[in-house]
Design a protein around this nucleic acid. Sequence first.
DNA 1: CGCTTAATTGATCAGGGTCAATCGTGGTGG
DNA 2: CCACCACGATTGACCCTGATCAATTAAGCG
Lengths: 230, 230
Amino acid sequence: MPANLAISSRAALPLHLLTPHSSWMAALDGQGDALRAGAVQHFHADQEIFCEGDGADLFFKVVSGTIRTCKFLSDGRRQIEAFYSEGEVFGFELAGAHRFSAEAVSDCNLIAYRRRGVEAAALQDRELSRQLLSYALHSATDAQAHAFLLGRRAAAEKVAAFLLDWAQRRGETQIISLPMSRQDMGDYLGLTIETVSRTLSQFERDGLIAIPNARHIRLLRKEMLEELVA
Amino acid sequence: MPANLAISSRAALPLHLLTPHSSWMAALDGQGDALRAGAVQHFHADQEIFCEGDGADLFFKVVSGTIRTCKFLSDGRRQIEAFYSEGEVFGFELAGAHRFSAEAVSDCNLIAYRRRGVEAAALQDRELSRQLLSYALHSATDAQAHAFLLGRRAAAEKVAAFLLDWAQRRGETQIISLPMSRQDMGDYLGLTIETVSRTLSQFERDGLIAIPNARHIRLLRKEMLEELVA
DNA sequence: CGCTTAATTGATCAGGGTCAATCGTGGTGG
DNA sequence: CCACCACGATTGACCCTGATCAATTAAGCG
């Protein structure tokens, strides 16, 4: 698996920033290892990592794979809040309980950290403190961009935005590989599986993309997709 | 004008937290006054406070009145990101530029702060640092709740959620006063002005609310509105 | 090779958008 | 003081996008 340099590729957020927490906390890498809670944990696809309402004493960094965070309505409707890939951090909460569930989209490896430990360390370590703030502000920015996407966008615009954002986050300029299902995409974009599928098919008919298979999409006319998002 | 104790009423975020930045930074009140950039500024209704893309060297705290932050699409579509009332802070950014515009909904008074000044002060002041993080995480939480509202909700659910959230934020249990227009509500909820109006009229016909006039709404069957949001 | 599940495609429907007319209200000037 | 005006809100008629229901195709996987 090529390492996705999510870091450099997201340095300056572009106009069509649509997706999730860009942030990662470099301070957790070096001596921050001391803050880890145990070894790397493996989760298989669709496994639950934590559940909405669970105590939020741990948060996670993605080593490999993709995870999704989501909320459910009583009638089963699901909203995916964000997807997280290699290097990204999720589940760091203000309150004592997680406000959404986290599940593995694909098989993945995660490192867990203790929230209290990191908070305590931040009191002594300005750089860590600064990165925590940066992480939180990035989270807010990403969530706002997501809300913007959901609020005032037609289906084609949502799908185009998603493809472009995903391509950029993963540094994939030609062929995008999508670890998530159409259902996941739909629940992220506030669309049904059918609408996502139809929109992609239409993009293909229009020559904007090619779909060699359901989990891989080739961008043929990126500039036209960007026009849709503008 | 009665002072709205937004602080106490938002201590613990409820399940249907839907709107904006709860947070305010108490540390800015005391000796934090030193961080202020000039006197209280007055803005009249619909006046622009800052514009998307403007340098974000200042951020603001609401003394009185209500403001909105929003983004625009090229074709004029507008998404309101959040409303801010007395005591709430907005416009504190990670990057050098504001990512949305801010406008006065009603006449209002604001205190400006210098971002760099506060950041510098936070390096010396752990409590301020902690509150900055708290503010940022609250912003993220609120934006995520907003995205959830926009993604998977029918019109009636959106409007009900908005009314309940607004009532709670302002501590208004009986009569809600709405400083914003129907257009503002629509642009916050991802609905048109007509749909907002129709939905409110339907609520009134169903006996859930009374609408003495367009800017005041009385909650008659709060529990039924809550059922819609559940 | 058949079974299971995801994805695509089609047909139909409805929620909410659009267009347009009317109502209400507050501000202004005669 | 009141008539008029302007603008926001409401209501109605109609339409369209995307949801729903249903069938078919494709793709893993034992």
